[in-house]
Amino acid sequence: MKLKSFLSASLFAAVLISCNQSKTNESGKDGSGKRIVIGSTMLSMQNEFVVNVSDEMEAKAKELGVELITVDAERSALKQVEQVESFIAQGVDAIVMNPCEVEASSPSVKLAINAKIPIINVNSETSTIPTAFVGSDDTESARIAMNYIVKKLNGKGNVIMMHGYMGQAAQIKRDKGAKEIIKANPDLKLLAEQSGEWDRAKAMSLTENWIQSYGTQINAIFAQNDEMGMGVVKALEAAGLKSKIIVVSIDAIPDALQAVKKGTLDATVYQNAKEQGGKAIETAVKAAKGENFEKEVLIPFQLVTKENLGEFLK
């Protein structure tokens, strides 16, 4: 009797697992029963935040039972257009694009729409409106960062801004948001601004140049992403100036969170890679199936300081 009960329970568990697997796999198929294939072109797989978004896209695709083909645009809008052309030729069911540039990546959107393939922009934008956008309001992220600097400086001092890759939506919008706050605080002066191209090593070199030019005149540096923020911190530490200069950046990547914990980075602004990546794939799958989906999914930013760091550390 015990053996019979064990076999019955085992059979029931096997059937249950099989049903659950079948349900997952079915969700990844289109109306004709064919497995959905999504092409993904990412700005740069050398950028930690972009990799985090891509990893979440991969995880969500696996969960939903769809095939995801990911390629690296290597910061080249021209390469990105060619990659989208290749996806169209392969006959993918949907495309997710993390745009390299607002204007130069826009032809990719036009190509996909003309081919009647849904294209979802994730994390960054193009001037041509895609099928859907999943990301966050980059203007708001810069407002959050700069307002923190205003508070720490009591509204008075010299600020330097390090831009990301020029022409990309995040760079344009973070510039806009930061300058709104600077304009609203007349005693805050923008001492210098230049691009560090989202890159840690370039940010370190650029900061070294600023130290030589301005030295102790600098009261705060706003880096438009954490990769650059880490480069800024390293240069300031080497010059013995970190304790005198406030540094704030955006993304809340693991290195930045640890730097906030150590006190070398004053604050970062959390951008939710998990939500962006997951929602992008969910939206792409719905669009591929012809189901209803949100045309714009905006995920809020959050300021991270030592006070609330525990909420963001894994």
Rank of each mutant, 00 (worst) to 15 (best):
291 E>V: 07
111 L>C: 01
122 V>I: 00
200 R>I: 14
12 F>R: 00
141 S>W: 01
126 T>Q: 06
181 I>L: 09
210 W>C: 11
223 A>S: 15
163 H>D: 15
91 G>F: 06
259 A>G: 01
294 E>T: 07
53 V>I: 12
161 M>G: 01
134 V>H: 08
7 L>T: 05
141 S>A: 13
161 M>T: 00
29 K>N: 01
245 I>V: 13
59 A>K: 13
163 H>Q: 14
1 M>T: 11
166 M>W: 10
127 S>H: 02
58 E>S: 10
217 Q>D: 13
59 A>V: 02
97 M>C: 15
300 P>K: 01
72 D>I: 02
112 A>N: 06
189 K>L: 06
177 G>H: 11
74 E>L: 08
197 E>R: 12
106 S>G: 01
256 A>W: 07
128 T>C: 00
37 V>G: 01
210 W>R: 06
264 T>N: 13
285 V>N: 09
112 A>Q: 06
21 Q>C: 14
38 I>W: 08
254 P>A: 08
2 K>P: 00
43 L>T: 07
41 T>Q: 08
169 A>D: 14
60 K>N: 11
193 E>R: 12
105 S>W: 11
214 Y>L: 07
117 I>F: 12
249 S>L: 10
70 T>E: 15
106 S>Y: 02
281 I>Q: 05
8 S>T: 14
191 L>H: 11
109 V>E: 05
